[in-house]
Amino acid sequence: MTLGTIGADEKVVLWQYGEVAHDMISTKTLGFWLYMLSDALVFAGLFAAYGVLDHSMNAANGPTEAQIVHPIAAFWQTLAVLTSVFAYSVATVAVKHGYRQLVVLCVLAAILLGMVFLGLEFSDFADLYAHGATPQVSGFLSAYFILIATHGLHMAFGILWLLVMAIQVSRLGLTAPVVAQLLNLRLFWQFQAAIWVCVYVFVYLKGVI
């Protein structure tokens, strides 16, 4: 380091040698955390829209909330998404110990459970469509479908990401960039569970109160 002198003989550092250690993994996870906060605000906007359009007026003589939500059936979805997130959590424990095979296995389990979730959601939507309850019927149904489908879209994107990570872990190994991605994906996947908690309670359960 280059020193300078101020006053009588007080030494101060002016230039710092050696690369300043920026922790790239932490910087990346912080950046992705910030992205997830902004994604959370997307859901805040959607929940606000749902809160406004969740009114008998907005059902426009179409089906109301209580007629279309099935909390008990949706609990299977809750189970699927929470278990999928748990499976991925186990994967991160495997990362810690460097068990590559187990990481891939857990990621595949998470993919499978995520697909179960999406399958249940798809059959739920298909059922509503069969009964003529489509997003085009009323403002309320628009808000309902778009809110749930946005979460579903996130889940689908997460499954794609999980697939990419399964390939990366088996092909590239647990290198620093792969580990940073695995950590980010963990946040992304956990976030889907958190949003589902809100959806389940404030759409499905509130709907039948």
């Binding site: 906007g45 606000a48 829209a49 406004v52 359009l53 007026m57 907005n58 059902a59 426009a60 179409g62 997003p135 085009q136 019927v137 009323s138 403002g139 309320f140 628009s142 808000a143 479908f145 778009i146």
Partner: peptide, 20 residues
């Protein structure tokens, strides 16, 4: 998609757009 978030009928709410 033909949804009714902000339409003037069929359960849309104009002011929801202005609000958001």
């Amino acid at each position: 998609l033909g949804t009714h978030f902000y339409t003037a009928g069929l359960g849309g709410n104009l002011m929801l757009y202005t609000n958001l």
